[in-house]
Write a protein that binds this DNA or RNA. Structure first.
Length: 892
DNA sequence: GCTCTCACG
DNA sequence: ACGTACGTGAGAGCC
């Protein structure tokens, strides 16, 4: 990258027209240009070359690549046949467009499309917006755009291939056509356009049209004087086709006032994302491009360069503290720990400041200095951080408050792309093209070698560079959020949620270790007993927990039939064992052993290991991990505590309130995912079932079994209907459904067909969402959470099918996650408002768990469901069920 | 570290 | 024809 300041310059590319030219440039080699996945890459490759040479030649500071949003535009509204003669876009071309967008993203170039408008209109509008600010170059394959030529705007049109361009200035237009750029719409109005399929005036071509324009100036001028023309066939045609001429002129005119949702600032070039670009070239098999990048060398060189570029840093002391915080301005703040568990580990140091000056220290007592603690707590003093939840918890453990964290690099990066889910600042910064920082792995090491650098200066440098990375990425990523229409998702959901989660984690939930230990005793006795019986059945001792040894016993020694194999040998999963249950008494015992052994190791022993001195477990919710927007829970995972089987469910008896005379209170959404499906699909039948408060599974059973009365629904029909409902949410297939409910595949196919017949808009939704994913490369939730699906166009059936199921499931699962997140934020606020002692402790995807004094339970029973069901407004009601009791087990 | 198994929504 | 349900975390065995 150049470091010298460049004069501003805007480059506007006509994405569709250039990509289409790129496609045909290598059309003869179409079938040789595929990657290992079978994706055609000829257009991507040529486009990529073209981009490289354009960027090198033009050196723009601002770039926008405009794309057509679809077939219908304001022009087709005016004239339905506009571009009506175009043949269908070849799929080999369409499949490449999402990758061109990916390439542009990696290059840090903005791309944009706008419903109802063509790329031309986006370009025209931006060219005008930039008119008095910076010179503009437009590159296109479409000569019509030469009408945009002005003293400030140059239009370059492809002549041959994509790299030979003809440059149009106003002078060149006059030289070539003898008319001004503004007259081009009059020219097109008279002569029409066969490729865009609008008529113009009969028998008038370019020559006649130019002659007329030289004489009369414009279409308007021409018709003012048409009566004076001497009688001729031309005069007749002009008079007859006046309407056609005026309409054609309007169609040809580029709209320079399109309602863009982006502005000039959004076209500012961002740094090239080297990591993404390399990954992209690798995916495309663009070996020559990779070779040019000189991979390792380039990356290393960049990093070395960036790491060598000095930054301004100084150790923070009590004497320079005041000057460090003198001005009110946003600062980056980074507080580090060695391990992952910020509930246990102690911080190693911190850095704060701006690129003008960074201050670092490993002396945490400095944070207690009034100047610093007040700065932290002041919501008007903005802080840019990485992981606001972690920062909040760590400071809370030091009895400090932090407010004003207006930018969280970790959260923002996750919203922009769920693949960027690394928890390491260095990794994320590199993903966004910022190389001036190392990863924690590089500096602290890993595993047992993980340690604070012995050289204090090295630690200080790393902390300061992390703070600087956060600071430098703030503007760019905030702009990207806005461009993605995700600013609300960040400002109103994820950012406030982080602080709610921090409070929940800090609160923790009390675990009755005596109760767990009593169960531990029982379980070990049971295990010893079953173990002995299993050894008897097998005729010898072996490790029952080893699938390998168990496989030998069952399938070689006892010669039981092999149902299923896996990579390493025989499968011994529940599914397999259940099918063998009647063949040998050992099976039943193994199943019981497995069940108890799981409870013992994962839940009893596992939980006992992570109880803090306060008798509580403090889970960490991972807010930036899942691909759908759900939370996950670790150390310990409190989102998979047993509930389905009675033996396991008893574990919940060990989760108790933190005070005597308090209770556990729990509320959960009823069928939230199906309600989301009813909402997003707009299916009237499914919506009616929810609006009428019907049992959705029984209702589905009636529909797919063709029953007329709810009393005809047997429990088994309901079970199958329920499985079908779930299947739909997961992205159904007859194979999967058949396997799940134990029916034949054709039967399952018939179920699905019946289902779609009864819920036709659900079927339409599924079709649409997959098409949307193919077209734009990602799917969205109701709150604009995104998930990119790079495999949606894969040739490989499995990859593509998986992406298709994900396209169906993610908006549903993700929107449900959005909803409960909103509810949690509102809930926390409401608890404070009502001055309740009750605390929100846990979230389990569709359920919230609280502890509260017994006397507050009646109020909670009123407000929790109220807050949850009003979190968002859907076309169907949200229903919430509540329960409470002495332990989590009893809150059922 | 990977694989298998199984706990949850 | 292809072979799968969607999203997670943790423990145990084995290398």
């Amino acid at each position: 990258m150049t470091t010298e300041a460049q004069p501003d310059k805007l480059l506007l590319l006509d994405g569709n027209s250039l990509a289409f030219r790129a496609f045909f440039a290598l059309h003869n080699s179409l079938d040789r240009f595929t990657n290992s996945q079978g994706l055609h890459t000829n257009a991507i490759y040529t486009f990529s070359n073209m981009l490289d040479s354009l960027l090198a030649a033009e050196q723009p500071t601002h770039v926008l690549v405009a794309f057509d949003a679809g077939k219908t535009t304001f022009r087709t509204e005016m004239f339905p046949d506009y571009k009506g003669n175009r043949s269908k876009t070849p799929t080999e071309f369409a499949e490449q467009l999402p990758y061109i967008n990916q390439l542009l993203d990696a290059y840090g170039l903005t791309h944009y499309q706008l419903p109802n408008y063509e790329a031309d209109d986006i370009i025209g509008t931006l060219a005008q917006a930039a008119a008095d600010k910076m010179p503009v170059t437009v590159v296109t394959g479409d000569r019509d755009l030469t009408q945009l030529t002005t003293a400030n705007t140059t239009v370059k049109v492809t002549i041959k291939g994509v790299n030979e361009l003809e440059t149009y200035t106003p002078e060149h237009v006059r030289e070539k056509l003898g008319i001004d750029p503004e007259q081009i719409v009059d020219l097109k109005g008279l002569m029409g356009d066969t490729s865009d399929n609008y008529p113009g005036v009969t028998k008038v071509g370019e020559k006649t049209a130019l002659k007329l324009l030289k004489q009369y100036g414009s279409i308007a001028g021409l018709y003012e004087h048409v009566a004076e023309m001497k009688p001729s066939k031309l005069k007749e045609n002009l008079i007859n086709d006046q309407q056609a001429a005026l309409m054609s002129q309007t169609l040809a005119r580029i709209n320079t006032t399109a309602p863009l949702t982006i502005d000039l600032a959004a076209t500012n070039r961002r740094p090239v994302d080297q990591t993404a670009l390399i990954a992209f070239y690798q995916e495309m098999d663009f070996k020559s491009k990779l070779a040019k990048m000189d991979l390792g060398d380039l990356a290393d060189e960049n990093e070395a360069d960036a790491a060598e570029t000095p930054i301004k840093l100084v150790e923070l002391t009590r004497s320079n503290l005041a000057s460090a915080l003198a001005k009110q301005q946003p600062r980056a703040f980074d507080l580090d720990i060695l391990g992952d568990n910020y509930h246990v580990d102690t911080p190693v140091g911190f850095a704060l400041g701006t690129p003008q000056q960074w201050y670092y220290s490993d002396d945490l007592s400095l944070l207690q200095e009034p100047a610093l603690s007040q700065w932290l707590a002041d919501e008007n003093q903005l802080k840019y951080v990485f992981d606001s939840k972690k920062t909040d918890v760590l400071l809370a453990r030091l009895d400090l408050r932090i407010a004003g964290m207006s930018f969280d690099l970790l959260l923002v990066s996750y919203l922009l792309n769920t693949f960027d889910n690394s928890n390491d600042l260095g990794v994320i910064a590199h993903l966004h093209g910022y190389a001036g920082v190392q990863t924690d792995l590089d500096v602290y090491g890993k595993g047992t070698k993980r340690a604070i650098p012995t050289d204090y200066a090295v630690l200080g440098e790393h902390l300061s560079r992390k703070a600087q990375a956060i600071y430098q990425l703030q503007a760019q990523l905030t702009e990207q959020l806005r461009a993605n229409d995700q600013d609300q998702l960040y400002d109103e959901i994820e950012a406030p949620l982080a602080l709610v989660l921090a409070q929940m984690e800090l609160a923790g939930i009390t675990v009755d270790s005596q109760r767990l230990k009593a169960m531990q005793q029982d379980f070990s006795k049971t295990l010893t007993e079953i173990e002995a019986l299993i050894y008897q059945d097998a005729g010898h001792e072996f490790n029952i927990n080893s699938p390998k040894q168990l496989g030998v016993v069952l399938f070689e020694e006892l010669k039981l039939p092999v149902i299923k194999k896996n990579k390493t040998g025989y499968s011994t999963s529940v599914e397999v064992l259940e099918q063998l249950q009647k063949s040998h008494p050992i099976i039943e015992r193994i199943l019981t052993y497995r069940q108890i052994s799981k409870l013992q190791s994962t839940y009893i022993n596992g939980l006992l290991k992570v109880i803090h001195p306060d008798h509580k477990v403090h889970t960490r919710y991972l807010q930036t991990l899942t691909q759908t927007g759900r939370l996950s829970s670790v150390d310990p995972n409190l989102q998979n505590i047993p509930v389905r089987l009675p033996e396991g469910r008893k574990i919940r008896q060990a989760f108790v309130p933190s005070h005597p005379d308090w209770e556990i209170f729990s509320s959960d959404y009823s069928q939230v995912e199906l309600r989301v499906l009813a909402h997003v699909s707009g299916d009237q039948n499914m919506q009616a079932a929810f609006k009428n408060g019907l049992d959705i599974h029984a209702n589905t059973a009636m529909k797919i079994f063709g029953l007329t009365d709810p009393s005809q629904v047997t429990p088994d029909m309901r079970r199958q209907a329920k499985a079908t409902n779930f299947g739909i949410v997961y992205g159904i297939s007859d194979y999967g459904l058949a396997k799940n409910i134990g029916i034949s595949r054709p039967q399952a196919a018939a179920f699905i067909a019946a289902y779609f017949e009864q819920y036709p808009d659900v079927q339409a939704y599924i079709k649409d969402i997959v098409a949307t994913a193919r077209q734009q490369g990602y799917v969205e939730t109701i709150m604009h959470r995104r998930r990119y699906l790079p495999d949606i166009n894969a040739k490989n059936f499995n990859l593509r099918s998986f992406a298709e199921r994900t396209a169906m499931n993610t908006p549903i699962q993700g929107s449900a996650a959005d909803i409960i997140k909103v509810a949690m934020i509102n809930m926390q606020q409401r608890l404070t408002q009502e001055h309740l002692q009750a605390k929100m402790l846990l979230q389990v995807h569709d359920e919230l768990i609280f502890e509260a004094p017994t006397e507050e339970i009646p109020l909670l029973a009123k407000i929790v469901p109220q807050v949850m069901d009003s979190a968002v407004s859907l076309d169907v009601p949200l229903v919430v069920d509540s329960a409470h009791g002495a332990t989590w087990y009893d809150a059922k």
